[in-house]
Design a protein around this nucleic acid. Sequence first.
DNA 1: CGATGTTGGCC
DNA 2: ATTATGG
DNA 3: CCATAATGGCCAACATCG
Length: 571
Amino acid sequence: MTDPQLPLFAAEAAAPRVATGRPSAAPFAAWAATAEAVRATRARREKGRLVATYLASLDDPGGAVAARWFAGAPFAEADARTLRIGRATLWPALAALAGVERERIAERRLALGSTAAVAGELLAGRRGAGLSLGDVHWAFEAIAAARHAAGREALVRALLAAASGAEAGVLVALLGGGLRIGLLAAQVEDAIAAAAAVALDAVRDAHALSGDLGEVFRRARAGTLAETVFAIGRPVGFMLAQPKPTPDAVAAALDAPFVLEAKYDGIRAQLHVQDNAVRLFSRTREDLTPAFPDLVRAGRALGAGLVLDGEVIAVRPDDPARIAPFRHLQPRLGRTAPAAALLREIPVAFVAFDALAVGGERIALAPWRERRSALEEHVPLDVAAPIRLAPFRWASDAATVIEAFTAARATGHEGLVAKDPDASYAAGRRGGRWLKLKAAAATLDVVVTAAERGNGRRAAVLSDLTFAVRASDTDDTLLDVGKAYTGLTDAELVALTATLESLVRERRGGWQRVEPAVVLEVTFDLVQASPRHASGYALRFPRIVRWRMDKPVSEIDTLSRVRALAGDGWM
DNA sequence: CGATGTTGGCC
DNA sequence: ATTATGG
DNA sequence: CCATAATGGCCAACATCG
């Protein structure tokens, strides 16, 4: 169907891609049917079994793409390309194909909760042209390479026109950025291990190293998983920390003595130094290098064969030893060619807290103590250097954790990370060997002023709540200060929806303004000045603590309290 | 040309 | 990032 | 305990609009 010619490989230079073999002629319909069967069951083992059975049935090496797609994305994590397809492209394409108005799409989207479900409904009964895995693969390649939205829409339309009704639903889900069948990378790893009869650990390790489930599947079947190489310049999966609610929980979860480090409020990054070539990668393996030429310059001085794990933070221009909050770093993110003035105004540092390779040798499997020694040999302790060593301290009890936490907060850090000194680096996993502890937040009592219907499984409830505070003790004007969607149970959301429906004042699609009567207690990590809401403030990581049925609107918090909670200056 | 809309990626 | 949910 | 879904706020890039 699509032309497997020139544009398909045009983007190759940007990010080296791993070959997955010749495109497969295997029917896409079987993949789509498997995805639907996975969606239909909630049993995790059954989902895994379905995927494993399907993967085992593929005899064509080009079928590797099938493994990738089950994780919900059209491309591998190691692949920097995106499709740039959203509702602006999907809705007109669907409307044209189904021969209905755009309004009808919007209406059904609201009722069904996802554009994928709308596609399945509107295109139901279509026979399809017998798409193969290879056809879909080429279509994704072509869409990613298409520069203009019109070109992408034409490609999407051609793809969907060739799809059966059953295929259209999953295709739209993949195109729109999420399969949502209750299956992600971790489950696909299980299925690959089962389908190829290899050890799960080997599959996980290969995935962490390659960032491509397609390659992992192909190698698992070829018996060459162990040949997945660690290479400097190629990002590895990050080891993540598990959240803990209290210092006691941290102390209880780790054997004494354990390690405490600051939790830096920046962006996690992996620094690769290979001769003169320095690269920085994000947690999702995006290439951050272009945004940080200052760190690249500093990295060249470290010596080759190094892979460091750490955090990029903003530092104060007047004193680079002191850290700046996350909002200062934000304008430096995503830049492809940052101006010299920006580099000056917002200086950054890479705070190294782990070493995955030194002298060209992978040391990720060694315990933290040994990795830390290696790190200290390669990174200066200088607290003002652009690439600097993260300090740490030993702790054996909760009291020490509390003390370190207080000190970290006073310095401007988010909190602490606690680590097991004997643990190896668990690439790509969030295990119990690293723990994080953040600040116990203040709460605000607010009133709901507007609500919006949710997506997917929340399509039937008003799950997205906009809330306000009073202007002052003497002025009852309500000023919006944020939105939240998490914290209430499903049952509470259902009950809340009924109440909010009785309070409707104005309705626009799935959105509605309501009489201010529902009082919520909300929490957050931070209050920040923002033009987003009428109050002039917004919340970082807002979540609902509880529905305050006992509290009248006349007693909710005021703008002055919000102002008092807002971070200001360098903190 | 600047403003706006869409998408993607950080936390 | 976060919380709720269910295997 | 683990994996997954659904979603906040900020910001940059890029295409398109006016």
